[in-house]
C-alpha cells in the first residue's frame, strides 16, 4: 500500500499531472527549447536536476523557513542550484551551455520549480518531495522531447542532429521557428484534451494555477480581476 503510494507520487507527474501538457506550467522554456531534440533533452535534464535538489532542500527546511519570507527563500535556494548547474555545464559541456544560453539562467523563474516548491515540497516530507521532483522533471523532459521530435523531424528533416534523407524534400522549416512552436504546442494540448475527453480541460484556462507568479502575488492582481470576470461571464451566460 505504502509502496504503491510512493509509486503513485512518482508517476502522476508523467501523465496524469504532466506539468507542461496538463498543468500548463513552464511554457517559456517548452516553446523556446523544443526546436531541436538535443536542446530539449538538455533543458529537461537541467530543470529536473534543479527541481529534485530544490524540492529536497525546501522540504528539509519547511519547518525552519518563516511563512512570510518563504517565496524569497525558495527563490534563493532555486537560484543557488541553477548557478551550480550553469557552472557544471560551462565547465564540462560548453557547447550545450552555448545552446541553452539565457534560458539556462531562466530556470530560476521556471514556474514548474517554484510551483512545485510552493504546492508540494513545502507541505510534504523529504522522500515524497524528492519523488515528486523526479516525476515532474521526467514529465517535463518527456513533453519537451515529444514536442522537439515533432518539430525537428518535420521541420528540419533530422533527429537529434542525424539527418533523415527521405524527408528532406518535404521539410516544413517554419516548424523549427517561433510560429511552429506555438502551433505544435497548441495541437499537442488539443490532442491531450481529445484523449482525456475534456477531463483535463478544466485546468486549461489560464487561472492562477497556470500563473508563475501565483505564489508571489498572493491572490491579488490579475486573479481578483479574472475571478470577477469569470463570475460576470457565468452570469451573462446564464
Amino acid at each position: 500500500m505504502n509502496k504503491q503510494n510512493k509509486l503513485g507520487i512518482l508517476l502522476k507527474g508523467l501523465i496524469q499531472e504532466n506539468p507542461v501538457l496538463v498543468l500548463i506550467l513552464g511554457t517559456c522554456p517548452t516553446l523556446a527549447m523544443s526546436n531541436s531534440v538535443i536542446s530539449a533533452v538538455a533543458m529537461g535534464v537541467s530543470a529536473t536536476l534543479v527541481l529534485l535538489c530544490s524540492n529536497i532542500v525546501i522540504s528539509l527546511l519547511r519547518k525552519v523557513i518563516p511563512d512570510q519570507v518563504r517565496i524569497p527563500s525558495y527563490i534563493v535556494i532555486i537560484a543557488g542550484f541553477v548557478t551550480m548547474v550553469q557552472m557544471l555545464l560551462q565547465a564540462y559541456l560548453p557547447s550545450l551551455y552555448e545552446m541553452l544560453g539565457v534560458y539556462l539562467a531562466l530556470i530560476v523563474v521556471n514556474c514548474i520549480i517554484l510551483g512545485r516548491a510552493e504546492m508540494y515540497a513545502s507541505k510534504n516530507n523529504v522522500i515524497d518531495s524528492a519523488l515528486d521532483g523526479i516525476g515532474m522533471g521526467i514529465g517535463f523532459t518527456l513533453a519537451l522531447f515529444a514536442m522537439a521530435t515533432i518539430r525537428e523531424v518535420f521541420g528540419n528533416a533530422s533527429f537529434a542532429g542525424i539527418a533523415i534523407p527521405f524527408l528532406e524534400p518535404y521539410k516544413i522549416s517554419i516548424l523549427t521557428m517561433a510560429p511552429g512552436g506555438f502551433f505544435v504546442f497548441g495541437c499537442m494540448i488539443a490532442l491531450v484534451n481529445k484523449i482525456s475527453k475534456g477531463k483535463a480541460i478544466r485546468k486549461k484556462e489560464f487561472g492562477c494555477a497556470g500563473c508563475p507568479s501565483q505564489a508571489v502575488c498572493g491572490k491579488t492582481g490579475c486573479d481578483a480581476g479574472n475571478i470577477q470576470e469569470i463570475q460576470v461571464e457565468k452570469e451573462s451566460n446564464a
Binding site: P179, C187, K204
Partner: peptide, 18 residues
C-alpha cells in the same frame, strides 16, 4: 471541442508570430 480555450489561443499566437 478539443481546441477550445488555450489550444486555439496558441494557434492564433502562431499566426501573429508569423
Amino acid at each position: 471541442k478539443s481546441f477550445e480555450g488555450l489550444p486555439l489561443t496558441l494557434i492564433a499566437a502562431a499566426i501573429v508570430s508569423c
